[in-house]
Design a protein around this nucleic acid. Structure first.
Lengths: 214, 214
DNA sequence: ACCTGAACACCGTTCAAGT
DNA sequence: ACCTGAACACCGTTCAAGT
């Protein structure tokens, strides 16, 4: 680290890089403030003049990672012919994100604390998660019949993604032996088929819809 | 606590009761070994002669709670006419379980540590989660066309339950304003419709299935 | 202003001593 | 045997002192 005395922007990048290194290589339990400080070439006290708590630092790392995931999602949105391929192509990236951050950050907790007002914590968090959510909703709306309630559909898709990611980062073996790709395809087909055949908006619900041929 | 000196069974129940009280009323961060000891009327060191670590105690509490959820699931299985009503009727109970335990226990972590061999930790955990999983799979098989791959279907259903529970215990507001019941119904209808119309076993896949009328 | 690092606070865990 | 509680270890956080 060749960061000069007083260069706050570079110092902040050093802190984030050190934290990211620890958390991606060794997991959340390895994210310790003394080690972050050592990795960034500073003393422990100094970290606290950049991020007021460990949770704030973690939230900043999460926001960065979410932005990278949103990049993946955006690229998939521009290249994938259908929702099934889109979901398959983003699955690995999301599972990696979830493995590192999934269980350890309560976004609501952060956003309802004073950290909400910190532009480099709450601000970044709102920006990155908002972007990912918008992209996901756009994906749903682009690939699902227009009479489906897209808010519910996006929420369900989001829940499914998180639930699958959880299975593949923790309890999968207890349940089954399917690969991530197989299960994502199965989930995608089931959701798409289900959205096409039922679950219209209450106003326009039809009793006999046409099933989408595969 | 009127537990007598040397009554290990009663003492263990006292410890579990104290832990459950803390965690259900104030959440995981309130599960502190000194407070568990005080609640059980013993000294901190004694807790460790019953559960070797805090994680072991937590896993035992999780196993107990999972057994109670399996009771709920079993009752629903015997009374609910269809899968949609079954899922709606267990949703609240599962969300409560998830709020308390969802993010804080890695079952695989516990089961791959020496705790696995402890009958009151790993043993109970295997028993209770195995029972819940079997019941869920039975529910799927009872309500879904026989040519669907029921292992995948159960895994997807499990993922969806976890994903929805996560939304309703943390980041829901960021996504949408639907109630739990509405979203569970939507998810159930979509899954059921999707399983009926697509995703047959590779061998018996049909191209035009009959949609289930609502 | 920015940074240091010793010290404090807290909580999981251990163990010599008690009954 | 079972239990006590002071002490240890660890890690998030603070703050008086340095440059």
């Amino acid at each position: 680290m060749a960061t000069r005395w007083g260069d706050r922007d570079a110092r902040r990048r050093d802190i984030l890089a050190a934290g990211r290194e620890l958390i991606t290589r060794q997991g959340y339990s390895a994210l310790q403030m003394r080690d972050v400080a050592r990795g960034a070439g500073i003393s422990p006290g100094t970290v606290y003049t950049y991020y007021p708590t460990k949770e704030a630092l973690f939230a900043a790392l999460y926001a960065d990672r979410t932005d990278r995931f949103a990049d993946t999602l955006e690229a998939a949105l521009n290249t994938c012919p259908d929702l099934e391929e889109l979901l398959v192509s983003i699955a690995d990236d999301y599972v990696e994100l979830y493995r590192i951050f999934g269980k350890n950050l309560d976004v609501v907790e952060v956003m309802s604390s004073p950290l909400r007002k910190d532009p480099l914590v709450g601000g970044r968090l709102l920006e990155s998660t908002g972007r990912a959510i918008k992209l996901l909703r756009a994906a749903v709306e682009a690939h699902v019949p227009p009479d489906v309630n897209s808010e519910q559909a996006a929420a369900l898709m989001w829940a499914t993604m998180n639930g699958l990611a959880e299975q593949f980062t923790s309890s999968r073996r207890v349940m089954h032996a399917n690969s991530l790709e197989d299960l994502v395809r199965f989930a995608a087909r089931t959701l798409i088929g289900g959205l096409a055949s039922t679950n219209k908006d209450p106003g326009s619900r039809t009793f006999l819809a046409e099933p989408t041929p595969m």
